[in-house]
């Protein structure tokens, strides 16, 4: 394929962003991986850091906890976000209303976590209200939803932060949707569910997968939210890596690098697969290939 003048221009325009991305992220990743295989520098190539990860039962617990927490908050955000997008996409055409969905996006995640603490902790607003109304006999009877060992606080924070993101990711799909397909299904006697299943779902699915993997990856590697609202134990993997990284004598740095490298690799593989599949699906749909 010969490069047209236009695509050369495009590459030039993208070059600074691309260099920054490769330069910082790519190089950081490269050196983290490199450090994870040198275990302090003297020994040459070694997998000892990875071996000690594999042998650490608490780390396995921490990874399991991370996956469950990230998985649950991603699933719930996707469901709520998709339902909201479906219900509201007509109203959200108005710029004023769209601002409402944009607003939570401007709140940083750690502020989001603090808001959850202020609302849901045992000395928070809801506990106080419930106590004032006599629904519970003491604020301490309010269910433990922050700094809890099951990750409710983390999940709550991510749901409220990510639902607007899901809505914004799915809105364009609804806007691009050809409404005549709905009419076809309905005139042929299909139910509303059939219209959703046969018209909307195939168009939504690529975006839902894409959004899902972004959310899952983001939550799995999350640091500040679990640091603020998580329990001392179990700990999400990024916090474990952080503690190792900043351990006073630096002896556990190779393990910190190894853990982050392993997590990154574990996320990149499914991400590539899903993006690849989503691309193909979208292309087929655009060409009018119908259901996959």
């Amino acid at each position: 394929m010969k490069l047209s003048a236009r695509s050369i221009k495009l590459w030039f325009a993208l070059a600074p962003a691309f260099l920054l991305l490769v330069g910082l992220t790519g190089y950081a990743l490269f050196s983290a991986v490199r450090h994870s295989f040198t275990a302090g520098g003297e020994a040459g190539f070694t997998v000892s850091a990875y071996a000690s990860l594999a042998a650490d039962p608490h780390l396995q617990e921490s990874i399991r906890f991370s996956i469950i927490t990230a998985g649950i908050s991603t699933m719930i955000s996707l469901v709520i976000g998709a339902v909201l997008a479906r219900l509201l996409y007509r109203q959200l055409r108005h710029a004023k209303l769209k601002v409402l969905v944009w607003l939570p996006m401007f709140v940083p995640h750690f502020v989001g976590a603090y808001i959850i603490i202020l609302l849901f902790s045992q000395s928070g607003l809801f506990a106080t209200i419930a106590y004032q109304f006599g629904w519970i006999s003491a604020p301490a009877d309010f269910p433990v939803l922050t700094h809890d060992r099951d990750g409710y606080g983390i999940i709550l924070t991510y749901i409220w932060k990510e639902v607007p993101f899901v809505v914004l990711m799915l809105l364009p799909v609804y806007y691009d949707m050809d409404q005549r397909f709905h009419e076809v299904v309905r005139t042929l006697g299909g139910s509303r569910f059939a219209a959703f299943r046969d018209v909307e779902w195939p168009l939504l699915r690529p975006s839902i997968f894409e959004t899902g993997i972004i959310l899952f990856a983001f939550t799995l590697g999350a640091f500040e939210v679990p640091a603020l609202i998580g329990a001392t134990d179990p700990q999400m993997a990024a916090l474990t890596a952080y503690d190792w990284f900043y351990q006073g004598d630096w002896s556990e740095r190779p393990e910190a690098y190894a853990l982050m490298s392993a997590l990154t690799a574990a996320l990149l593989m499914p991400a590539f697969l899903i993006f690849y599949r989503a691309r193909r699906l979208q292309q087929r749909l655009l060409k009018g290939g119908g259901r996959s």
């Binding site: 910082l24 950081a28 050196s31 983290a32 999350a222 640091f223 990284f245 982050m260």
Partner: peptide
């Protein structure tokens, strides 16, 4: 005491210089 994780990664990158 804790900072965002991105600074950790960037620090890692610089460390390797």
């Amino acid at each position: 005491k804790r900072k965002t994780f991105s600074s950790f990664l960037i620090a890692g990158a610089l460390l390797a210089a």
